[in-house]
């Protein structure tokens, strides 16, 4: 089976990453259970799951520092088990921890991490300069890391993974413990890198980050991928519907009956409030005009759009941050 996949993947380079039937156990705990997914060139792929779901284990296996018990990983057509060094040149990893030397300056840190990839000195210095511009810390490059704020350290943490110009960037919860402003700055960096064609694998347990950044998402829980696809595809898989919740100032039984007939949509109601399952973008204006035509005065209107939190809850039966 694996040999077939390997031959197949070699001739299918459009997938930057192909993970097939990957498993990993630590003594009696199975951290990753038979997961498979593929990531196309230029995608931002989100691995979404609660703490302990198996995201970091998966990233560690994809980034060569952890051997899988079973399964295969291909990085841009290279079998990771057979050719880990070629894979290491293709990937950059932004670890969850701020893995920097506190007593070095930002520039010294970048120089050190870049030199591990044997980049010629001149080229490395140019690369450092452009990355410092990208992350907005060029003016602080000679300050010691220990004098940086948490958000600034996170940005240097990202920069350290970019020096060898990798095709793929693994980002393992890159925004943990940063303020909203720094988080936004990190999002902008991710988007800028992606715009340059970099494929990004982004793990997080913050659904809003995945919603903003990721083209496709894999929801991982207890070591298994429960669902994967675009957000719309995940919505379909989860059967979670968008809803409009309208509260009227006054409404009679007749008015409700008439409303139900004219809307031809699934509708729940109590004394003054109705909840309608619909496609908000398509149906909302129609719903409002029918209410107006029936002289129903809207006191409050709430859109219940489908988000990943709801999809995750629907698929796993638990909250994302449990």
């Amino acid at each position: 089976m694996i040999w077939f996949l390997r031959i197949f993947e070699v001739y299918k380079p459009i997938n930057m990453i192909q993970v097939s039937h990957l498993s990993k156990s630590f003594e009696k705990i199975q951290a990753v259970k038979d997961i498979s997914f593929s990531i196309k060139k230029g995608e931002i792929f989100g691995l979404l799951g609660p703490n302990g779901a198996g995201k970091s284990t998966t990233i560690n296996m994809m980034s060569t520092i952890l051997k899988s018990d079973e399964g295969a990983i291909f990085i841009d057509g290279n079998d990771l088990n057979e050719n880990p060094n070629a894979c290491k040149q293709l990937i950059g990893v932004v670890p969850q921890e701020i893995s920097l030397y506190d007593d070095f300056t930002a520039y010294e840190n970048l120089l050190f991490w870049g030199s591990l990839y044997k980049i010629p000195s001149k080229e490395l210095k140019e690369r450092i300069a452009s990355i410092l511009e990208l992350i907005g810390l060029a003016d602080r490059k000679n300050d010691l890391i220990k004098t940086y704020s948490g958000g600034m350290k996170r940005r240097i943490n990202i920069a350290s993974a970019l020096l060898h110009n990798p095709k793929i960037l693994f980002m393992d919860e890159p925004t943990v413990g940063v303020d909203p402003q720094s988080r936004n700055r990190i999002f902008e960096i991710v988007e800028a890198l992606n715009a340059e064609g970099m494929t990004i694998v982004y793990t997080t347990h913050y659904m809003e980050e995945v919603e903003r950044l990721c083209n496709r998402i894999a929801i991982i829980d207890a070591g298994q991928i429960i669902a994967q696809g675009t957000q719309a595809q995940l919505q379909k898989q989860s059967d979670v519907e968008e809803k409009v919740e309208i509260t009227f100032e006054e409404v009679s039984e007749n008015q409700l009956k008439k409303l139900k007939e004219e809307l031809s949509l699934e509708m729940l109601h109590d004394t003054q409030k109705i909840t309608i399952a619909c496609d908000v973008n398509k149906d909302l204006s129609n719903i409002i005009s029918i209410c107006n035509n029936n002289n129903l005065k809207i006191k409050d209107l709430e859109l219940k759009k489908v988000n990943l939190e709801a999809i995750f809850l629907n698929l796993t039966g638990k909250q994302l941050r449990d």
């Binding site: 520092i65 290491k88 990893v93 921890e97 920097l100 991490w113 591990l116």
Partner: peptide, 13 residues
């Protein structure tokens, strides 16, 4: 403990 060892292992070393 600081995670830099892990980062070193990500590199071609």
């Amino acid at each position: 403990d600081a995670g830099t060892l892990k980062r070193l292992l990500y590199s071609p070393l």
